[in-house]
């Protein structure tokens, strides 16, 4: 799946700005960005719903609207796509199946897969948010597609549903399928994605693996607890720490020195150390830091 120089403007606002990325098969690719970063618009351009002002989006070399029976190639879940409220879950999936000549038995299979068999004949209008999301996922899985494009799929799912979805996405990727999943929740991404596409204000900030992303942009620091924080901070700053901060619980967060070095400096200065540990910033912090840097790609 390929986005090449996608640009979309709504009036004076450029929602997606010269965005290019590649989504490879066999891994889960996380599409990350704060709300309003242009994720949904980009996905809709990939799926032929929104016309880009310039640039192209292709899936397996073809534009979405040129795919023959597209549901068999791409399964998509969009935040803003909802079935007609007066339809039953079965009714909705049945017409979808017919539109792409998908065997009828798949309707029952996907309903079972998402745990909606019991609600199959209920009107969609009576569904909870979570059930609606499961139905959307059922629709995405209907054509057993080699490509999945899911916009904020965890929205409305309970803890068990989220775990189930995570396993599903990993399993699909392990089968060699292409999985693109967006989220504004970085912690969620860290648990499911292998690769990351990070955007902010419509522009690409990073396209890399999760571990590399954290390694490159993440903050590694050493936590120190001591009864003499002031003296410790002075000593450490004098001996090469790039920054020493006081955490809320009174401990120190030391940047720029490895744990062993911190320990030696403290011992040499006669400062007692009660606790010493190394921390790697979470994806959440890493992401927020990157976006805070102004969303300027030169920072990457």
């Amino acid at each position: 799946m390929l986005a090449e120089r996608l640009t979309k403007r709504y009036g004076p606002a450029t929602v997606v700005d010269d965005l290019s990325f590649t989504v490879r098969p066999g891994v889960v690719t996380g599409f990350l960005g704060p709300n309003g970063a242009g994720k949904s618009t980009s996905m809709r351009m990939l799926l032929g719903l929104t016309r880009p002002d310039s640039g192209t989006a292709t899936i397996g070399g073809r534009a979405y609207r040129d795919l023959t029976y597209p549901l068999r190639h791409v399964g998509a879940l969009l935040e803003t796509s909802a079935p007609h409220r007066g339809m039953t879950a079965v009714g909705h999936l049945s017409w979808l199946a017919r539109s792409n000549r998908i065997p009828r038995r798949r309707v029952d299979e996907v309903l079972d897969a998402v745990g909606l068999t019991g609600a199959a004949r209920k009107r969609v209008g009576t569904f909870s948010l979570g059930m609606g999301q499961r139905l959307g996922l059922a629709a995405a899985l209907l054509g057993d597609p080699p490509v999945l494009v899911l916009d904020e799929p965890v929205n409305g799912l309970d803890a068990e549903g989220i775990r189930w979805l995570r396993e599903l996405l990993r399993a699909k990727a392990a089968e060699g399928r292409t999985v693109l999943v967006s989220s504004h929740l970085m912690a969620e991404m860290a648990q499911v994605a292998d690769e990351l596409i990070v955007i902010s204000r419509g522009r690409l900030l990073a396209e890399t693996s999760v571990s590399e992303f954290i390694g490159r942009h993440g903050r590694t620091f050493v936590r120190v607890r001591t009864p003499e924080p002031l003296r410790a901070a002075q000593e450490l700053q004098a001996k090469g720490a790039t920054s020493v901060r006081r955490a809320a619980d009174g401990g120190l967060e030391v940047d720029g020195l490895p744990a062993g070095e911190v320990n030696r400096i403290a011992a040499a200065a006669g400062v007692p150390v009660e606790e010493l540990s190394t921390h790697t910033g979470s994806l959440e912090e890493t992401f927020l830091k990157l976006v805070d840097d102004g969303g300027d790609p030169t920072h990457v």
């Binding site: 796509s81 909802a82 409220r85």
Partner: peptide, 18 residues
């Protein structure tokens, strides 16, 4: 109009993009 009152149009166009 059923296509417009809910988010149905997107689903319909995903199934039949032309």
């Amino acid at each position: 109009s059923g296509e417009y009152t809910s988010g149905m149009m997107r689903v319909s166009l995903l199934a039949v993009p032309r």
